[in-house]
């Protein structure tokens, strides 16, 4: 089970990012636990300055805008 955190205060793009992670994981048949982090303090502590940010298993892999679909796949597989 992979743990994915999506950082963002709840803007539309952050919701799209969550959906994208879920859909990609389903398509790849990977079990994921997706958590939305909306608290500004936690977002800042994770080092995210441009939202949405994405962390996989505790490692921040992306920040700012929607991720590239191919890259997202490889983070989830990796």
């Amino acid at each position: 089970m992979k743990s994915v955190k999506v950082f963002g205060p709840g803007c539309r793009r952050c919701d799209s990012a969550v959906k994208m992670v879920r859909d990609t994981a389903t398509a790849l048949g990977i079990d994921v636990d997706v958590v939305k982090v909306v608290d500004p303090k936690s977002i800042a502590q994770a080092g995210v300055m441009a939202t949405p940010g994405i962390a996989v298993d505790g490692k921040l892999v992306h920040s700012g805008g929607l991720p590239d679909p191919e890259k997202l796949q490889s983070w989830l597989r990796g």
Partner: peptide, 15 residues
């Protein structure tokens, strides 16, 4: 710099 208003708080704190 890429910026959207929902990033204002994280950028503020980060800076």
């Amino acid at each position: 710099t890429p910026f959207c208003s929902c990033s204002a708080v994280p950028i503020f704190i980060g800076f």
